[in-house]
């Protein structure tokens, strides 16, 4: 026996086959969020003397913008895609599928995919800027706030690589190092160009 609403959600995900799409969105947008924060933090770090009272709202602003962009773009595109798919299915079935599980899934899936797409970069960003908040609140960290936050960003990007490795059933360390190298190249470019 399983909890009925949970079972319904599982059914919608299965019917729409949206688990893979959501997972892809999660990785892509988490990566976006983490790299954006890394870029901002490195920018603040190299320009030196940037106050936390400036850096935190700037990072938060970017995080919220990423979340809104993720939410709306995924919702609108998925809604359009699902509508087309549902119409094709109705044509193939030669019947009105209003009220069916497919109809409900086609309306529900854009919402859940949009939430994944929007909340993943926001969550990543909030975790990454946590050291900035901690220092602002008076906590002492072994490294400076920007170095700590940059360190967290590298760790999260590495973990995203590990997650991708597990999904693709490749060696997790190799996959983690691969994303870490991308982050290091980004950091190098910012450091050189900024």
């Amino acid at each position: 026996m399983s909890f009925e609403p949970f079972r319904k959600i599982q059914q919608f995900i299965s019917i729409s086959q949206s688990y893979d799409i959501a997972r892809r969105y999660f990785v892509v947008n988490s990566f976006d969020g983490a790299l954006t924060m890394l870029g901002l933090l490195l920018g603040f770090y190299v320009s030196k003397g940037v106050d936390l009272a400036v850096a935190i709202p700037a990072c938060l602003g970017a995080a919220i913008a990423l979340a809104m962009s993720g939410l709306t773009s995924a919702y609108l595109s998925e809604k359009a895609e699902r509508k087309i798919e549902f119409k094709k299915l109705q044509d193939a079935m030669v019947s009105d599928l209003s009220g069916s599980a497919q109809d409900k899934a086609s309306r529900w899936v854009p919402i859940w995919v949009a939430l994944i797409n929007g909340l993943s970069p926001l969550l990543m960003s909030l975790i990454i800027i946590t050291p900035l908040w901690l220092v602002q609140l008076g906590f002492e960290l072994p490294l400076g706030p920007f170095q700590s936050a940059i360190g967290v960003a590298f760790v999260l990007i590495f973990l995203l690589g590990v997650f991708l490795g597990r999904v693709s059933r490749t060696f997790w360390l190799f996959s983690g190092l691969q994303t870490l190298v991308i982050a290091l190249i980004t950091a190098f470019l910012i450091y050189v160009l900024a």
Partner: peptide
């Protein structure tokens, strides 16, 4: 009965 591929027959 005619049905779409999803849900699977078991469901």
């Amino acid at each position: 009965v005619l049905k779409p591929h999803q849900p699977y027959v078991s469901e």
